[in-house]
Design a protein around this nucleic acid. Structure first.
Length: 400
DNA sequence: TCTGGGGTCCTAGGACCC
DNA sequence: TCTGGGGTCCTAGGACCC
């Protein structure tokens, strides 16, 4: 029995959210993103898109496209609030909602729309109602699987409403460029083109023939892609939020550096704010990964797994600092433009109390020095770690 | 002034164990 | 001793998504 799955995608979400609280910006070219030396556009409203402004575009280029462009910094807390309010209303119509990101969700409508004589009419009315109530417009794709629904919602924006039945796949999806295939990105698409695959239809035929080169290019993904394109993809909605598996921060430096000492403060503040997030959510981690991006944009990483999962900033910082030294070592004086740190193998703090008792701080030689450093960070009381870390960073930046 | 930041998943080689 | 394998974990790198 086929399900009825919808993919609901908020249009130009961050920009729309800003227009709601700044009505004076409505209709003016607006983008959300960073404005610094390495700022990049995250979302542009439709007025800005007319000038060629688009997401992932460097902000200075966007400004060159449209000199009147207004660029606002992102305010994620506000967007989370707006997103919850919007999808909360969807839940009033349909309880089975799976969030896929801050601005999109999959919804199982089988139960409620299965016997409806005019499901598209119903969704069109819901879409208009949501627009009136929240100010946010969305595009909806409706199909028997999640992938088809996602492909559908991408077809028309803003306020699109597209149904893709299995019998429509050839007519609707086959003519589309391979670039539109969700799951095939900028690296794989050109390789497929080399194999004579220009459209989704071309890919469908190659997969149907079990073309060896295509299968090799796609690897394990080939069978998933074949399922998707033939209408057999995943159609199950998971309403529970999955446990987060890793947490990370990275920062493009204001100026390239070539020694770990020059990146010390950035690393320090990232570890302090990550470890306080871990502590707040009662999570511990075992694997620490440090990433550097060199001036040619190549990434280099080094990771280490500790025996006892932890969220202690002293331990995490010391490990990260050691990894950063080793990573710089390998770069042999090359310039570094970004430092990132990630913590993974994350689990609940409660689940590892037994191992905690086995913990031996003396394993960490330079711990005393680290304690001093953290003490220094903590001296200002009454503010949370994140604020403290940011203040330190700003102070440092101001001194340059 | 070229090119962000936060995630998930996959691959492939080596270590180690049975 | 001429050479098995399968399973799992760790590490480094990379593709993809929003």
């Amino acid at each position: 029995m086929s399900k009825i799955i919808a993919h609901i995608d908020l249009n130009a979400f961050f920009a729309s959210a800003e227009e709601i609280r700044h009505p004076e910006l409505q209709g003016k070219p607006l983008a959300i993103g960073g404005e610094g030396r390495s700022g990049i556009i995250s979302t542009a409203n439709y007025a800005a898109r007319k000038y060629g402004v688009h997401s992932a575009q460097p902000s200075f280029q966007a400004k060159a496209c449209c000199e009147d462009l207004i660029i606002l910094p992102p305010d994620f807390d506000y967007y989370v609030m707006m997103s919850r309010s919007f999808f909360g209303r969807i839940r009033e119509f349909f309880p089975l909602v799976e969030m896929a990101s801050i601005d999109e969700a999959y919804v199982d409508m089988t139960e409620r729309l299965g016997k409806n004589k005019d499901p598209l009419g119903f969704l069109r009315r819901m879409q208009n109602y949501l627009k009136e109530e929240t100010g946010l417009s969305c595009s909806i794709g409706i199909a028997p699987t999640k992938w088809l629904a996602k492909m559908g919602s991408d077809l028309k924006k803003p306020m699109g409403l597209t149904a893709i039945r299995r019998k429509d796949i050839e007519k609707i999806l086959y003519p589309l460029s391979i670039d539109n295939f969700w799951g095939i990105g900028k690296k794989t698409a050109p390789v497929l083109r080399q194999l004579g695959i220009q459209t989704i239809g071309d890919l469908a035929r190659k997969l149907e023939e079990n073309d060896a080169a295509t299968l090799k290019t796609l690897g394990k993904f080939a069978s998933t892609a074949k399922d998707w394109i033939e209408g057999r993809g995943n159609d199950s909605i998971c309403i529970e939020e999955a446990d987060q598996k890793s947490i990370s921060m990275s920062e493009t430096l204001r100026k390239n550096v070539s020694s770990p000492q020059e990146g010390e403060d950035v690393l320090k503040s990232m570890v302090v704010s990550l470890s306080s997030k871990l502590q707040e959510s009662h999570k511990v981690v075992s694997t620490i990964t440090l990433t550097l991006k060199d001036a040619e944009f190549r990434l280099h990483s080094k990771s280490f797994t500790v025996q006892t999962p932890t969220n202690k900033e002293q331990v995490l910082y010391l490990e990260a600092w050691k990894l950063m030294g080793e990573c710089f070592e390998r770069l042999k004086g090359k310039e570094v433009r970004l430092i990132g740190v990630a913590f993974s193998k994350m689990e609940d703090e409660a689940r590892q109390t037994v191992q905690m008792s086995l913990w031996n701080y003396e394993d960490y030689e330079a711990l005393d020095k680290t304690k001093l450093l953290i003490h220094d960070l903590n001296r200002k009381s009454g503010k949370n770690q994140f604020i403290r870390a940011r203040e330190i960073k700003e102070k440092k930046n101001g001194n340059r």
